[in-house]
Design a binder for these strands. Structure first.
Lengths: 336, 336
DNA sequence: ATAATTTGTGCAATCGTTCCCGATTGCCCT
DNA sequence: AGGGCAATCGGGAACGATTGCACAAATTAT
């Protein structure tokens, strides 16, 4: 098996003690230049790498951060993860990624798993099912640095970074209104998710501004965020079976947006002829779609980067941090 | 800061020694039932979790595997990672994901990083730039379990899992031929990548079978696998500027396929009117595209799962493994 | 009643590293 | 010449968990 060289190996080979070798490699002042060179060269030669587990044990930190997202195979999250990685790597941290598949149970297990794995901090985007955040609060109360991004809880006080969901939703809805649409439906994810609430707020705000009454029948929730196509299909069917059928729909999620387009195509409902569509999505191929869909794009990469910077700041802070940021980044509307 | 309870904490609280506590928790026969219950209950109460770093140090393994892919934000890889995760998780392993962005330099750094991080094994898909695999051979020779998937080297003897690229390419090309196309171009990635070679072979085999001469001008390489749009655009432009302009194109990669469609759309070349397109892609939204593209889909999730199973078998094997599998999984052709 | 065995527990070493103490040298200064 | 003091280095205790061995107490056998 693979047995990397240790300090002791170097010490034995050079007739020194491990402490001297350790100090030489760390370039301490109390070691002579000649010994340092000796040790350096030998370490180089046998390609010595300090054992990270021993270091973690001693330093009580693992130089790794845990990430909890619903799905890696999701445009938003995969881009966010790229952002997370780009920062973490530069700062010498490893990234351990876990997926919840929108399940509360898996979120709890993953949280537990990562904590026991002694990550130095957590980057979390809540699952669609999560209504109770006790598992995270527990860790946070005990001093585990946590930064939430995208889907954030409101009962845990720590750094948070979100897209400007309300404004994004407002812009998209107003865009539909400006196109002359009056009966604008709203398809969204589970109702306790922060992003759902904010996007709903933006949607109603736009309607209000233009004096369009909010019709509760036009608002459809998919508790699993479109994980199950049937969920999306049922919602769309309910909408088009209304006697006052909507002529536009604003969709509050990537998977939902794609799913809705599939359903519309299947039902032979022309877009934008019979139904104009606008929705949140980070897909990079919307330009190639047969049915044009105006999209609200979140700065995923940027958000991942910023969240990681915030987390590392928490981790590496000498004093307990009590002032927390709540950063909001603007979305971008792509009209199609 | 976050200080999880240790064995010593339990021992002190209960007036026992750490060894007794350790043995009680591991349910050894030599500890009395009543002591066990005492320890169990208390450990439960304070939510004790063994320190994984201490364990890793002692057991000389980290219960984690490293993954090296070009990009997480890629349909194929994000699906493969889901497969990797699903198996690793069940077996108690953590997954550390790194990205090369198709750069050889980053691949070397990541490999080094993961090795020094003492992962128990590696799951690798080579970057487009990688022609030299010395960095991986070095580790492999020293006993590091490695399984390659998708893009595999031919000079390292270990488990490998690939899609049946040759057959997939053959099927796609023949499909274009069966549609009556005669001048079929081929757009592919860097020429030393295993997948490029195999797909090229399948392409030429299909042409051969139908007695269509292979025209070297029709074969375009993008050394960075379409990471840079200009690369793709230049290739397409070169193709359509040929005096004997191709009427179809078979594309050997996800990013390239999408990129090519974008270029064709930009150039106002109708698909399939002026150009019929077939290509490898794991995107799940091809059905929604304006331009129909027949696609070869790789069983990404399946491949991730199998690769992980193979790797865990290597890791957990008592004896050094010398017989290596070379698993090939069939692709699926979606005609559009 | 004494020896032999079982039962339950603790001591200490180990994994690789760092770091607090000392220990040893050489050299300067009085 | 001898005390003081840098300059260098080594010893050994952590960090948290496991485990072979030792050892006491309790039980059984002789």
């Amino acid at each position: 098996m693979f047995e990397p060289p240790t300090l002791k190996d170097i010490a034995n080979a050079l007739g020194l003690s491990t402490s001297t070798v350790s100090r030489a490699l760390r370039d301490t002042y109390e070691i002579s230049a000649k010994t340092k060179k000796l040790v350096f060269d030998y370490a180089e030669k046998i390609n010595y790498q300090p054992n990270p587990n021993a270091l973690s044990l001693k330093e009580r930190r693992s130089k790794s951060i845990g990430v909890i997202v619903s799905e890696v195979a999701n445009h938003y999250f995969s881009q966010a993860i790229s952002g997370i990685e780009s920062i973490a790597y530069d700062r010498g941290y490893h990234v351990i990624i876990t997926q919840t598949h929108e399940s509360f149970a898996r979120e709890k297990i993953n949280t537990q798993h990562l904590a026991s794995r002694s990550v130095d901090g957590l980057l979390v985007s809540l699952s669609a099912e999560t209504a109770d955040t006790e598992h995270l609060k527990y860790l946070h109360d005990r001093g585990m640095p946590i930064v939430f991004f995208d889907r954030v809880p409101n009962d845990i006080d720590t750094h948070k970074i979100t897209a400007n969901n309300e404004k994004g939703a407002f812009d998209a809805t107003e865009h539909l209104i400006n196109l002359g649409r009056k009966r604008i439906a709203h398809l969204t994810s589970s109702d306790h998710l922060s992003i759902s609430i904010e996007r709903l707020t933006g949607y109603t705000a736009a309607l209000d501004k233009h004096n369009i009454p909010v019709n509760p029948d036009y608002i459809k929730h998919c508790p699993h965020g479109g994980m199950f196509p049937e969920e999306t299909e049922r919602a769309i069917l309910e909408l088009i079976n209304l006697k006052d059928k909507p002529d536009a729909i604003f969709i509050a999620g990537d998977r939902l947006s794609i799913g809705a387009l599939e359903v519309l195509k299947k039902l032979n409902i022309s877009v934008p002829g019979q139904m104009t569509v606008a929705g949140f999505s980070n897909s990079d191929v919307l330009n190639l779609f047969e049915y044009p869909i105006s999209s609200v794009r979140q700065p995923a990469f940027e958000m991942g980067k910023t969240a990681t910077e915030m987390l590392l700041q928490l981790i590496e802070s000498k004093y307990p941090v009590t002032e927390f940021d709540n950063k909001v980044i603007d979305t971008e509307l792509f009209v199609r």
